[in-house]
Every structure is written in C-alpha cells, then in structure tokens.
C-alpha cells in the first residue's frame, strides 16, 4: 500500500506517504504539535489527547488525536485552530492539577501559558499514558507490566501485583515516564517506579547482580553513589 496522498495542512497543499499519521506529516512539514504519550519507536496509543488537531471543514469538523489518525486523501487538517488551542489548554490544566510535580507537564504548561488552576489539587504519580507498558512490551520484549481495571480504578502494574518474573529491571519504564522520572530514588523502592511498577524493585536496588544490564535510569542516585 505504498504511495502518496494529498492533504491540506494548515492551508498548505502537501503530498505525504500513505501509512503516516497526521502527527508524522505535521512534524515533517515543521508544524509543532505537543505530545505526551507518543514516542518514536513505540506504537502510537492515543491516551493523553494532547496532540489533538482539527480535521474536516466547519461545521462538520472534529478533533482527533494526530498521533493515531492515519492520513487520508483530501484530509484537511488544522494543527493550531482556536478550538485545538482551547482543548490543549484544558488538557494541560487538568494534567497540572493532578500531576503538579512532573517536570514534563510543568514545562508543557508553561509553554502553553497555563496560568490558572481551577481544579482541586491532586498528587498523582501516573497519567496512564502507557509509555511504560509499550516500552516494556515493544522494546524490552518483557511484557512485565500492563493496564488493569477501568475508569477511576485503572492502574499500571504487574499481574496480581506480585514481583514479575519477566521484568529485567532495565528501568526502561522509568526512563520514559513523563510523570515520575524525577522522583525515582533508590531510597524508597516502593515509589521508585512510577505508579504501577511498585512491586518491582528498580535496578539500582539490586545493582550488584545486574552489573552489565542495559539500564535506562538517567539521573540515578544509585549509580552516582556507586561511582565513588
């Protein structure tokens, strides 16, 4: 199914390869779209909704997540219409109200000029973006963690909340997490890995037995200490 299609991107007539997503196309042509749950090398999932763009002609136009929506012949896309910006701001306000400690979210919020905080303050350490799950499954081939439950009770974790046999303690999940990366310290293994992985001890804790492991933990206290 290789070939190309024609579409309109922010008024620009462009031709792009079939099989691309709107996000790919927009980025290719230099239109920025903020994302949270999207990462090169992982399959698109469409959880955070931050990447929404407007497609179609008003009044039938609608918002779709650009990271999951495939390009189509004749598609009309606006990546920064008033409707898109309004939605983006609300999403960031929601994120900031629930996950104020995340550096990634703080940065996005300030980039988008979020100046109010109208929801009750919460302190959650997971936005259920699913990056960790996809990292673990698609890059680490481990499938140690996954989603459980639905609605308010949805969470990330290992099956039955017991220490996973297949987890390789690579830390990849922590590395990709936008919500908890900076809070990862080996002193509190329970909190070390974002929301779901609470039952896995992070690599740093058992560093000795995993000397040659592939480790993703970027600012890692354990490693810092070990160097000395």
């Amino acid at each position: 199914m290789n070939g190309s299609i024609h579409m309109t991107l922010n008024g620009l007539e462009v031709s792009v390869e079939t099989g691309m997503t709107i996000l790919d196309a927009a980025r290719f042509f230099g239109f920025p779209i903020p994302t949270l749950c999207h990462m090169e090398g992982l399959s698109p999932y469409g959880a955070c909704r931050l990447c929404v763009v407007e497609i179609g002609d008003a009044p039938q136009s609608k918002l779709v997540s650009s990271c999951t929506y495939p390009v189509e012949e004749g598609l009309i896309v606006r990546t920064a219409s008033a409707r898109v910006l309004r939605a983006r701001k609300m999403i960031l306000e929601l994120l900031l109200a629930s996950c104020p400690q995340s550096k990634v979210i703080q940065d996005l919020a300030s980039e988008h000029d979020i100046r109010q905080q109208r929801f009750r303050q919460e302190h959650e350490d997971c936005i259920l973006c699913g990056l960790c799950v996809r990292m673990c499954e698609e890059q680490m081939m481990a499938k140690a963690i996954g989603f459980r439950g639905r609605g308010e009770k949805r969470s990330i974790g290992t099956p039955f909340d017991i220490h996973s046999e297949v987890c390789r303690l690579c830390g990849g999940c922590i590395y990709v997490c936008p919500a908890c990366q900076l809070r990862c310290t080996y002193t509190e293994p329970d909190k070390a890995i974002c929301g779901g992985c609470v039952n896995i001890s992070p690599p740093c804790v058992e560093k000795d037995s995993y000397d040659d492991m592939m480790c993703y933990m970027a600012p890692c206290v354990a490693c810092e200490i070990k160097k000395d």
Binding site: Y45, G46, A47, C48, L94, G130, G149, G151
Partner: peptide, 21 residues
Amino acid sequence: LKDESCGKCYTCRKGTQRMYE
C-alpha cells in the same frame, strides 16, 4: 461514566472525574 470509561483517554477518565467532582 467515570466508573465505566475505559480510562484510556486522559480527558475522558480525568474529565468525567472532574465533572463528577
């Protein structure tokens, strides 16, 4: 709806919770 949302979309999961609140 807040209990029955699958929870995948942030705005559906959190949005229904906040509207409920």
